[in-house]
Design a protein around this nucleic acid. Structure first.
Lengths: 221, 221
DNA sequence: CAATTAATTAATTAAATGTTTAATTAATAA
DNA sequence: TTATTAATTAAACATTTAATTAATTAATTG
């Protein structure tokens, strides 16, 4: 007996301890729990058990439960910023590039939608504002500029509202990943990289051509 | 002193008490709190204070905190089912009807997206399955049938994948409301009924015609 | 009118939680 | 080798929470 699965039950500093290992294990366990449940719903003891260490380690390494949460968020934000680099840095960002790159990133980082929902859609005040400024504004103005350019060049129809058109493209691209459980349950698909690619090609074509059959149709309304 | 704002501080049954009033006040306060924060993050005391009654009333009327939560969910589900009746009961559901009706419903019930995110996207197991069966399956098959019909009749392009096309329409319609804080912050708009209508007309047109200018264009890719 | 039932409050209880502390062992520096 | 520092655990602590209880008052019923 004497539970062996949770934490070492010998007191004192263990042989060959380096610290960094425990720190990383805690960060990973924190990510798993905090992305699944909300801050208050996760206990320090739960996280510590998942990481296989004593609960006091959270305070030892991160000062407090909140400190661990913040460290985890900063870890993910760093990963996100790394990913977003894939969108380049031009003044404009074509809808094709946006759609393909975003689909791939969302499929590659399944934790992303949950993270955004928690940090942007649900959190209040400063956190939300910072996240929005940090990411939305990283590509939204560029995507908008690209759409405006295509409208004024006559490539896109001139009666289009650029802002609404941008929202449309974002909805086409992002919604399936936000609604992942519904998609997978109702449509019997898996949102993996393959499906994401198929989806983004479909989205681009629908965005550009619409659904109507060009060869004069009719249809019973 | 002797706090007068929270709960009556005279003991015993108050004159003219009917019970139903307190019950409804608690339900409303519960909705406000539970849709903003997660179950564990909301205390019975908070809810009771918002409703202006003693915390013990939660247990008196609903048995437990969880009982109150369930009662609140059932209340909202009933309201949702009432709303969904607006989608009719035909075998098929046109994308136009879906887009217009859904946009209106989402704008009229601002709590809906938050509620769905909590109950469907975040909750686990049974609750999620029940919600998906109860709503998604109430219109998804009908929308799909309508799209399939338009494809086989030649009204829509035949190379379209019906399932992906349905997802597209759902994304166009629902995403702006899910991402409400981002929309309002980045785009400087308010997601009211007016904007919802404008949005759904835009979506229908984009869905049908796409963005390309029919009169032979070109564009520098 | 008396007895019972309904509605409400304040006080209490028991469990859980985040954090701190003291003890303990290993690693390192003097 | 000795003293100090780092890493770890178990236990204790203070706080918060949901839930229960007993007291109290009004309404209803017989």
């Amino acid at each position: 007996m004497s539970n062996g699965e949770t934490s070492r039950n010998t007191v004192g500093r263990p042989a060959g301890a380096e610290g960094e290992r425990v720190r990383l294990d805690l960060l990973e366990a924190a990510r798993q729990h905090f992305l699944k449940s909300e801050f208050k719903a996760v206990s320090v003891r739960q996280i510590a058990e998942s990481a296989g260490v004593n609960a006091a380690m959270v305070n030892y390494y991160f000062g407090s439960k909140q400190g661990l949460y913040i460290a985890m968020v900063e870890d993910l934000v760093a990963k996100l910023e790394e990913s977003v680099k894939a969108l380049g840095e031009d003044h404009t960002l074509s809808v094709e590039d946006f759609s393909r790159t975003y689909s791939r990133l969302l499929a590659e980082n399944p934790w992303w939608p949950n993270f955004i929902i928690r940090e942007v859609l649900f959190s209040e005040g400063e956190t939300r504002e910072v996240m929005i400024r940090r990411f939305a504004s990283a590509f939204a103005p560029r995507l908008l500029a690209s759409i405006k350019q295509d409208i004024s060049s006559g490539h896109y129809r001139e009666e289009l509202d650029p802002a609404l058109t941008m929202i449309s493209m974002m909805g086409l691209t992002i919604f399936p990943f936000l609604a992942k459980p519904i998609m997978e349950s109702v449509l019997n698909v898996t949102l993996d990289a393959d499906f994401a690619e198929q989806l983004s090609e479909h989205n681009i074509e629908l965005f550009q051509q619409g659904v109507l059959n060009a060869a004069g149709s009719g249809g019973t309304s």
